[in-house]
């Protein structure tokens, strides 16, 4: 599903150049649940952003579902993101003036799906994350765990090939963290490829493969199950 070869990425800041990713090689098959670990500055978030087409890379190659992803303009990147990827962020990133169901329906709007169908699909996913009764609530009326579940439903609604989660439990307490991770595992069991960036060992342990980054290189790549 994801194939990365000798990927390099540097950030240029004034005269200094910061080499963040130093030759990453990575293959992720369909249906895997992969945790990417590392301390801050290890390059894990940069890697996720490149996989998520939110950022460009310098050298190497990246194929997603056999499509070469390289130097995309914003329009193309937006279309690929919409087609291939679902995002879950640490800070949820829900649109605050839209209700739960409207947030979930938004990617479908950009896919050009008709209004009524959007509602049906969005409600389905809301049901899946157990928040059917909260459809008409604004994000400000939801708890952290509920917000993240709405965000997951939104990421799933566009039927992406890969779900990318950047510290999905970073803003949550341990109980809700577990709930959210259980939801992610359940989604994975239904066949979705999922990448989770985290620095929490407990969260990583729930995945079936753990990749550890340090200083821009992959240190370990362990299958747990």
């Amino acid at each position: 599903m994801i194939e990365i070869k000798d990927l390099n990425k540097s950030y240029v800041m004034g005269k200094n150049s910061l080499h963040v990713l130093k030759g990453i090689n990575l293959k992720i098959k369909e249906g895997e649940l992969v945790a990417i670990m590392g301390s801050s500055g290890s390059g894990k978030s940069t890697l996720l952003n490149i996989i998520g087409m939110l950022d460009n890379y310098d050298t190497g190659s990246y194929h997603l579902d056999n499509v070469t992803i390289k130097d995309l303009d914003e329009t193309k990147a937006a279309k690929y993101r919409n087609k291939f990827l679902g995002f879950v962020f640490q800070s949820f990133n829900l649109i605050n003036y839209k209700t739960a169901i409207e947030n979930i329906a938004l990617p479908l709007y950009y896919q050009g799906i008709a209004s009524k169908e959007r509602q049906t699909i969005a409600l389905d996913y809301l049901d899946k994350v157990g928040l059917k009764d909260w459809a008409g609530h604004l994000p400000s009326e939801l708890s952290g765990g509920q917000k993240q579940r709405v965000a997951i439903a939104r990421a799933l609604a566009s039927k992406p090939k890969v779900l990318l989660a950047d510290e999905p439990t970073g803003a949550l307490d341990s109980v809700t963290s577990d709930e959210v991770m259980e939801l992610i595992i359940q989604i994975n069991k239904e066949g979705k490829t999922i990448l989770v960036v985290t620095h929490e060992q407990e969260v990583a342990n729930m995945c079936n493969r753990i990749i550890t980054l340090k200083d821009g290189v992959i240190m370990t790549d362990v299958k747990t199950k």
Partner: peptide, 16 residues
Amino acid sequence: TKELGIRKAIGATPNS
């Protein structure tokens, strides 16, 4: 700005 960033992340093109 942030809202527009979210919209872009979930598939809005710059033109839209």
